[in-house]
């Protein structure tokens, strides 16, 4: 950086360098944690808020969830055409936000498989619900597939295995949806 600079220029350069501070390890970790939390709780292109607001929102959501155990229990099986389906998503995002990297992918797979199984249960009564469940489950599964290669090598195997099982569930749900559609047309 000091190529060809005079002594006085070097002195100014040194003072400029000292004008700023480096991020410490703790700063980096807390900032990245807040950024990840914000990304998980807000969709793309939405206005985001700083850490304390985001964490506040997460805590408020968690408080809301824990103070309404019955509602949460009900929402965990809520169908897309129910208002409680939003609560179901919120609860899932809170769980993802506090999970470890491996736990997060396992949760995504679990959320996906729950939806695939549920879609098979409801397809004959409510086809739009089944389609949406499969679509949302597929989104979770796709996110997990994207992330799995970034996990520690030793932990990728079990997650890959779960991904394969979830993929089979997805295929079964899509198959049943297609069969139901075909029967409806006959």
């Amino acid at each position: 950086m000091n190529d060809g600079l005079s002594a006085s220029e070097l002195e100014i350069a040194d003072r400029l360098w000292k004008l700023a501070a480096d991020a410490g390890q703790a700063d980096t970790e807390s900032i990245m944690q807040a950024v990840r939390a914000a990304r998980l709780t807000a969709g793309p292109r939405r206005q985001h808020r700083p850490q304390r607001i985001v964490l506040g929102a997460l805590m408020a959501a968690a408080l809301l969830l824990t103070s309404a155990v019955g509602a949460v229990a009900a929402s965990s099986q809520a169908l897309p055409d129910s208002p409680a389906y939003t609560l179901r998503f919120t609860g899932e995002q809170v769980r993802l936000a506090v999970a470890s990297p491996v736990g997060r992918e396992q949760l995504r797979i679990q959320f996906a498989r729950d939806r695939f199984h549920q879609a098979q249960d409801v397809v004959s009564q409510n086809r739009p619900n089944a389609k949406r469940l499969i679509s949302d489950g597929s989104d979770y599964l796709q996110q997990a597939r994207h992330e799995v290669s970034s996990l520690p090598a030793g932990e990728q195997g079990p997650v890959e295995s779960q991904l394969n099982q979830a993929g089979a569930d997805q295929a079964a749900a899509e198959n049943q949806l297609n069969q139901d559609g075909a029967q409806g047309q006959q």
Binding site: L19, A20, A21, D22, I31, H48, P50, Q51
Partner: peptide, 25 residues
């Protein structure tokens, strides 16, 4: 982080918030 501390000051209380907002945006 260095850019924000250069503008706000090394020990400004809002450095972390501005850096976070930048990365979130």
């Amino acid at each position: 982080y260095r850019f924000v501390t250069m503008r706000l000051g090394r020990d400004h209380a809002d450095v972390d918030d501005v850096v976070q907002e930048t990365l979130i945006a």
